[in-house]
Design a protein around this nucleic acid. Structure first.
Length: 845
RNA sequence: GGGGCGAUGGCGGAAUUGGUAGACGCGUUGGUCUUAGGAACCAAUAUGGCAACAUGUGAAGGUUCGAGUCCUUUUCGCCCUACCA
């Protein structure tokens, strides 16, 4: 018997699938299933994370297809973005060429994995065929008032003269130049996602097939809060009469001791000529934007001459500050400070020696309670607050205060959302051009639809600072309706590209429209979306926004939620290695004889420092190259392993021994198949009931695991299946029910190891019929069942009895059992609990 | 500071959802075969004990005939998020 040659077999089937367009999908009367994995960024080569993501998706797609669903399983490329531009700057490359080459490489790698993808629907977001529709959508949204332009701050690197994304700002400095990042005000485009804040929050409840974790994250991100807006009259300024604040704690108004404004508050313009203020503002902007620096940053303020008056107590006049801890983009950029009952306000008041009035006492304190070393932020009873005294906090106090404020026209109930509008302008080259121009008076002019796409000019070498499009004078100038205009040079955030690609897949070849309504109505929503948890908020929220935005005036577009089911898979991890020089080492560069001590291959005497297992990353060099693994072990082995060791939602450790064992499994299963094939040539003898029993129960377990994404359990089942059939073969008999059962098993293997399973199946499946096996209940139910005999809840014996046997009969049967006797010790049975076919619990005293 | 998830053998993990804890894999140990094996096959493998048996799902309580699973308290670990008024 020959060893399994995965190279020839795998390429045979991949060729077959390609030539027969086995995964081509089109609208039909069948029930559909849209299976989608998050499409990759073409960074160069696929990594293990992709392998895991797409292996999980492929199992599902193939399973659903075998079940008779009409499956849509497409793939594309999220191909705009900064890595291409950075690579271009660093190596003097053309981003388009770089990207296209990567796509080619990665596509061939994905094909080697044997994925059941309908490649005819492939899309690439950087192609004009794709982004011209995106530009159309942008203009549609503009017409609906969901796109607008306003001045907003960006991170500006003064040395590189470029705009930085938040994640490129490290400790307040530019990641490449190391220069202190400035805040710069630019005119930028926004999507009005806040228009849907309430809907996006409320509709999360409908998403029953989403992980709670993701829903919670989105809920927190949207950040709905119930509070009130209050006008504070101002003294000491001829410029303003009042300042508006938002608060969720109006009940603490009698503890009012200062009012703080953001340095970006509109009132700051009156202080622009004050050098002290300018200096203060500068200090604020230098405070890093990282989490740590914010948490540690001291609260500082700039005192103005203004006094704010407590609307509930005219005698209570307090100073107005500009303060570094007040954000302009939340509420009104102004807060009323109550140091007694808020940590920040407390810190600030301590520093500037402001009055601290206690207005809430904890339940277990008396009315003389005074806030001392820390604020009391919890619940309690109102004190020192005139008409509010005695109310419970927060149940009665807040609503009563708001009612009073509203009745006296001092403030209004207000619901606030943390969710901000989505800034989509990027001062970058490698993105979708914004289809807008400006006339000589700087008025916004839409690019006419007939002129779409606004194609990116081809720039061979990117070596300018800032946005390369700014210097493309020829491209920039355009005449619209006879008027000279200048194009917008910003491009769209790449999150826009991925916010509707799942729609495009349904009509990827339709040149006239972004998508065809008939296609959308049939295929959407995506039944199962699979990807990393890192997209829990932005990508998924933006996509949810997009379908709502499209639906707003498109009456035939009847879709609220793009993704019915969501599954977030865990990461692929590997140990990390460091040499003497503290430099990271790739697993390829080290070896170990005992699995504990590692040495460097080139320098076998040098011991390697082994670090904890972490998610694979280029920077830590703890990556395993999927292509190498496929070349060495074959795609089926790799798929088998990546699904075997951990449940898909959890992190998985890459291990050589695990990979090796998966490879062995594929090999030995092939040999098993050969042996079975030989046996099947012999004369049939009587059927073997055990086979029916085992196979039907196995399929039941596999079905259950498939539905619950417990793919690691399926792999365990496959091991048991191997052992079972291997044992059957020891009899060397061709049971009449062997073939039919074995065929069923092979079909259940198709989703996981499609090459091997197809190859094995081909030999015995003369009728060429492949359908997911139906369980025969007759064989699930054995005539006999094992009943556990417990005494006082402890397992003492297991007996085999006829199914459905009554309690009395069982008691009768075990009465004379010595084992039982021993435990009952002659004592009377006080009570019995019987669960049919499962358990009999005897309670004795 | 806020929120979430988790804790089961030497390791990764099973447990049909309150009913035989440790499936399956890795590792380890012993054996068979072999010139050899880091190959293949067979067997053992939660802990203590020769055994009968006892103990055992981070810890402490509770509900129950029965708890890894439900409730309360607690410890530890990981992740997300954050000056959100």
């Amino acid at each position: 018997m020959e060893r399994y040659n995965f190279k020839t077999i795998e390429s045979k089937w991949q060729k077959y699938w390609q030539e027969n367009k086995s995964f081509k999908s089109s609208i039909s009367k069948e029930k559909k299933f849209y299976c989608l994995e998050m499409f990759p960024y073409p960074s160069g080569k696929i990594h293990m994370g992709h392998v895991r993501n797409y292996a999980i998706g492929d199992v599902l797609a193939r399973y659903k297809s075998l079940q008779g669903y009409n499956v849509l399983h497409p793939m594309g490329w999220d191909s705009f973005g900064m890595p291409a531009e950075n690579a271009a700057r660093q190596n003097n490359l053309n981003p388009k060429t770089w990207t296209e080459k990567n796509i080619q490489t990665m596509k061939s790698q994905l094909k080697q994995l044997g994925l059941s993808i309908d490649w005819d629907r492939e899309i690439s977001t950087c192609s004009p065929e794709y982004y011209k529709h995106q530009q159309k959508l942008f203009l549609d949204l503009y017409d609906k008032g969901l796109v607008y332009r306003k001045e907003s701050y960006v991170n500006w690197d003064p040395v590189d003269k470029t705009v930085l994304a938040n994640e490129q700002v490290v400790d307040g400095k530019g990641w490449r130049s190391g220069a202190v990042v400035e805040r710069k005000k630019l005119n930028q485009w926004f999507f009005k996602i806040s228009h849907f804040s309430e809907e996006l929050l409320k509709d999360l409840d409908q998403l029953n097939d989403w992980p709670d974790k993701v829903k919670t994250m989105q809920k927190n991100w949207i950040g709905k809060s119930f509070g009130c807006e209050i006008d504070f009259p101002i003294e000491g300024s001829d410029k303003v009469n009042s300042i508006k604040c938002y608060t969720t704690r109006p009940d603490t108004l009698f503890g009012f001791s200062f009012l703080a404004l953001s340095v970006d508050h509109p009132l700051s313009k009156f202080y622009e000529n004050d050098p002290e203020f300018t200096k203060f503002k500068e200090t604020c902007s230098k405070t890093g934007t990282t989490e740590e620096s914010i948490a540690q940053a001291e609260k500082i303020g700039f005192k103005t001459n203004m006094l704010a008056i407590n609307p509930l107590d005219k005698d209570n006049k307090v100073p107005v500050f500009f303060a570094n801890f007040v954000l302009m983009d939340y509420g009104f950029g102004a807060v009323f400070g109550c140091p007694g009952h808020d940590q920040r306000d407390f810190d600030f008041a301590k520093k500037y020696k402001l009055k601290i009035t206690t207005v809430v006492k904890p339940l277990n304190e008396d009315d003389n309670f005074v806030v001392d070393s820390e604020p009391h932020t919890g619940s309690g009873i109102m004190i020192n607050s005139k008409f509010l005294n005695g109310l419970s906090v927060p149940e009665e106090s807040i609503s009563k205060t708001i009612k009073y404020l509203e009745e006296n026209k001092l403030g209004n109930k207000k619901i606030n959302y943390r969710l901000k509008d989505w800034g989509i302008s990027r001062q970058r080259y490698w993105g979708c051009p914004i289809p807008i121009a400006y006339d000589e008076n700087n008025n916004v002019v839409k690019i006419p639809e007939k002129d779409l796409p606004v194609a990116l000019p081809n720039i061979e070498k990117i070596n300018t600072d800032g946005n390369p499009l700014d210097t493309e004078d020829k491209w920039k100038s355009i005449i619209i309706d006879g008027k000279k205009c200048i194009r917008e040079t910003d491009t769209l955030d790449t999150f826009v590209d991925s916010s509707w690609y799942f729609l495009r897949f349904c009509s990827s070849k339709n040149d006239d429209y972004p998508f065809n309504q008939e296609d959308i109505n049939y295929w959407l929503p995506v039944d199962q979306y699979i990807g990393g948890i890192e997209h829990a908020i932005l990508h998924l929220l933006y996509s949810r926004f997009f379908v709502r935005a499209i639906e707003l005036e498109n009456k035939t577009f009847n879709l609220k939620e793009p993704f019915k089911g969501l599954f977030t898979q865990g990461m692929v991890c590997h140990q990390t290695y460091k040499g003497k020089d503290n430099k990271w080492l790739n697993p390829d560069e080290v070896f170990s004889e005992n699995g504990k001590d590692y040495f460097i291959k080139d320098r076998p005497k040098e011991i390697v420092k082994v670090g904890p297992s972490e998610s694979m990353s280029k920077s830590k060099k703890n990556t395993i190259d999927p292509e190498k693994m496929i070349a060495e072990y074959g795609a089926d082995s790799v798929r088998f392993f990546i699904l075997s060791d951990s449940p898909p939602e959890k992190d998985i450790q890459w291990s050589d021994s695990g990979m090796n064992s998966s490879f062995k499994y594929i090999q030995k299963f092939w040999l098993l198949n050969e042996k079975i094939f030989l046996v099947l040539k012999d004369k049939k003898v009587n059927s073997n009931e055990n086979i029916d029993l085992f196979v039907n129960q196995a399929i039941k377990k596999i079905n259950f695991a498939l539905e619950k994404f417990r793919y690691n359990v399926i792999i365990a089942m496959f091991h048991e299946i191997y052992s079972f059939f291997n044992k059957i073969l020891e009899t060397n008999l061709n049971y009449s029910n062997l073939k039919e059962n074995y065929k069923k098993i092979l079909i259940t293997m198709l989703p996981v190891i499609p090459h091997l399973a197809n190859e094995c199946l081909e030999k015995i499946n003369e009728k060429k019929e492949i359908k997911w096996p139906i369980i025969n209940d007759k064989f699930i139910k054995n005539d006999k069942s094992n009943v556990v005999i417990q005494i006082n809840g402890k397992k003492r014996a297991v007996i085999s009895v006829d199914k459905g046997l009554g309690e009395k009969k069982i008691l009768e049967q075990i009465k004379h059992d010595k084992l039982i006797d021993k435990y009952t010790n002659g004592k009377d049975i006080f009570k019995t609990i019987y669960v049919q076919d499962k358990i009999l619990n005897l309670i004795i005293k």
